[in-house]
Computed example of a mutant assay.
Amino acid sequence: MRRCVPVVEEAAERTKLWWGAALVMAAWGGTRGKRAALAGLTAMAVSETLSNAVAKPLWGRRRPPKELIPHDDVEDRPDSSSFPSGHTAAACGFTGAVAVVWPAAGTVCALPAAVVAVQRVHSGAHYPSDVAAGAAIGAASVWAVRRLPALLHRVIS
Rank of each mutant, 00 (worst) to 15 (best):
A105E: 07
A117M: 14
V101H: 11
R146Y: 00
V116F: 04
I137L: 15
S129V: 15
G138F: 03
H122Y: 15
H122W: 15
A132F: 15
V131I: 08
V101Y: 02
C109M: 07
L148S: 11
H153C: 08
V115T: 11
G106M: 00
S123Q: 12
I156C: 09
G124D: 07
A105G: 14
A104C: 02
L148K: 02
L111E: 00
A125S: 10
V142I: 05
G138K: 04
L152F: 10
A125K: 10
I137R: 05
Q119M: 07
V145G: 03
P112S: 02
A133I: 08
V155H: 10
V155E: 09
V101M: 13
A117E: 10
A110C: 04
H122C: 08
G138V: 05
P112D: 03
S129E: 14
V108L: 12
V121G: 15
S123D: 14
W143F: 15
G124E: 06
G124Y: 06
A110N: 00
A139C: 13
W143R: 08
P112I: 02
Y127N: 09
V121A: 14
G138L: 04
R154V: 09
R147H: 08
P149M: 05
R146C: 06
S141R: 01
A136D: 08
S141C: 09
V131E: 06
T107W: 06
Q119D: 12
S129N: 12
H126Y: 02
V116N: 03
C109P: 05
V145N: 02
S141T: 01
Y127G: 09
G138M: 05
V101E: 15
D130P: 15
L152V: 11
P103M: 04
A114P: 09
G134S: 12
R154Y: 08
A140C: 14
A104H: 07
V108N: 01
A144M: 14
W143M: 12
G134R: 11
P128I: 14
